[in-house]
Design a protein around this nucleic acid. Structure first.
Length: 477
RNA sequence: GGCGGCGUAGCCAAGUGGUAAGGCGACGGUCUGCAAAACCGUUAUGCACCGGUUCAAAUCCGGUCGCCGCCUCCA
């Protein structure tokens, strides 16, 4: 039985979709004005696992993740660079999709864009005005927060507390400082659309109401996004959506993923420690990044450091090293006593418990130890045993999308990437190995060890195999 | 100031009432010419601290301290 932590109720609840067998899910995507970063990747990967797990549970899932392609930041970037807003958003949307593909994030059912739903937004705003929850002021339209009963129920805030926070900007066009824009009158040089209130553009929150309702209906099951979106974005989105329909809850379950920190510090533009995905994926294998992102419960903070990434890499290397050994061992007549079925049970129990991906890793490494021991004893697995292991891993991977690479390819890829960071070429390494082999045959241990130390100082670690060959791998700390 | 979260070994991290998974690292051993990898063993008599409930608590309750997030655009 799947249980999930619902921000709205503040409790872990059994998951019961509104319509049996079907799940409708909406997740806030990116504002396309810059390269996506690790935080975007975390949200995408986390909800990708949610999506995949719901499908694994045989739900018919409709998953919507939007692109915000009209926004102050985009307009500013356009003004700063001279590029059109369309060119900017097209560029970063494409880049986002490329990065997500590399991270094995499945494409959602639809990826609607705000600018393609202006008409729907205008329709919602008109209904809000008709319902007495919004008012036009000049060429702007605002949502009147105090008219909506229940404002603050998602982020668990009281209107009066917010008011005293006093960080809300004063705008003489608003009746109340907390009121937020549904529609903004056009300023020269900005993108604009026709509306009953004159030319203008939508406020930030209304787009998600419009797109979620269009694709999922007036009420749906799961709404996700980063913690920071809880307030004000999701609070406002919920208020205006329920304000339009008069039906609650707008989304039954609200899920919020935690932040990524960089060396224990919040990742932010002002600190200047943003890690863009193109940069990260140039350095780390996507599977390592994905493993890292899933090595922690989705709602907890996650600290990106050299050490945490090295740990992730080493864990996967160990995993694939063993698998590679296992698969390459000639077929025999024995079946290792792998508790695969049990692992799969643990896997499902873990994910059932609020998508706890961190808990499932342990079980997998138990198998690794068992496999290594089996092989260390010189035993040979049957072809069927090999196939069964592959199949089992694929069943798990269908949800987490890690642990199912071809082991030899994974290791080779790590090596290939590593070589580029070395001061040595592959040929130089092989020449050293050849020379060392001669030295070893001559029992010239001094020269042999000298060569090994030299290579080690270049982060190349040698491994003498029982058959006389010497393998090597790159170990950068 | 308001609201929320967290504090488990050197580091990362599961575990929400039944006696501390797993990964990285370290140390000892087996293997090896020596290493590396792998395997075996050791590495938290204790889960921030103090009280309480219970036959039993990392897990529930109360308090203390510390860290963090949100309240402003942000995944």
């Amino acid at each position: 039985m799947l249980k999930l932590y619902n921000t709205l109720t503040h409790k872990k609840e059994p998951f019961e979709p509104r319509e049996s067998g079907k799940v409708r899910m909406y997740v806030c995507g990116i504002t396309a004005y810059d390269e996506c970063h690790l935080g975007h990747a975390r949200a995408a990967v986390v909800f990708d696992v949610v999506y995949r797990y719901l499908k694994f549970l045989k739900y018919d899932v409709t998953y919507i993740r939007n692109f915000t392609d009209v926004d102050d930041k985009i307009i500013k970037k356009s003004a700063d660079t001279g590029q059109s807003c369309e060119a900017i958003t097209a560029k970063y949307i494409q880049s986002y999709q490329e990065q997500m593909t590399r991270l094995r994030v499945l494409a959602p059912t639809e990826e609607p864009r705000a600018t393609q739903h202006i008409k729907e937004m205008v329709g919602l705003i008109e209904r809000l005005i008709a319902n007495g929850l919004a008012y036009a002021s000049g060429s702007d339209v605002f949502f009147e927060v105090r008219k909506f009963r229940g404002y603050g129920k998602l982020s668990h805030k009281k209107i009066d507390d917010l008011e005293s926070g006093a960080r809300v900007e004063i705008d003489e066009k608003k009746k109340d400082p907390l009121d937020f824009a549904l529609w903004k009158g056009a300023k020269p040089g900005e993108p604009e659309w026709d509306s009953p209130w004159g030319k203008g553009r939508p406020g930030w929150h209304i787009e998600c109401s419009a797109m979620s309702m269009k694709y999922l209906g007036e009420r749906f099951d799961i709404h996700g996004g980063g913690r920071d979106l809880m307030f004000p974005h999701h609070e406002n989105e919920m208020a205006q959506s329920e304000g339009v329909t008069g039906k609650a809850p707008f989304a039954k379950y609200w899920l919020h993923n935690g932040f990524v920190n960089i060396n224990a510090e919040k990742m932010s533009k002002s600190i200047g420690n943003i890690r863009s995905m193109p940069a990260i994926l140039a350095q780390w294998d996507p599977e390592i990044v994905r493993y890292f992102l899933l090595s922690n419960h989705y709602a907890s903070p996650l600290d990106f450091t050299d050490e945490s990434m090295t740990n992730a890499r080493e864990a996967l290397r160990r995993f694939y090293e063993t698998l590679n050994r296992f698969y390459q061992t000639p077929d025999g007549a024995e079946t290792p006593a792998l508790p695969l079925a049990e692992t799969e049970k643990v896997f499902q129990t873990s994910l059932d418990d609020d998508f706890n991906t961190a808990a499932l890793v342990g079980g997998l490494f138990d198998q690794i130890r068992i496999l290594n021991k089996f092989l260390d004893e010189g035993r040979r697995p049957t072809a069927a045993a090999k196939k069964e292991l592959v199949a089992g891993l694929q069943r798990i991977s269908a949800v987490v999308a890690i642990f199912d690479a071809d082991p030899a390819e994974f290791l080779q890829k790590q090596k290939d990437q590593g070589i580029q960071k070395l001061a040595l070429s592959e040929k130089q390494i092989n020449d050293f190995i050849t020379e060392r082999k001669q030295a070893r045959l001559a029992k010239n241990w001094q020269r042999s060890d000298e060569i090994r130390d030299t290579l080690a100082s270049h982060n190349v670690v040698l491994k003498d195999n029982p058959d006389g060959t010497t393998g090597w791998e790159i170990k950068i700390a």
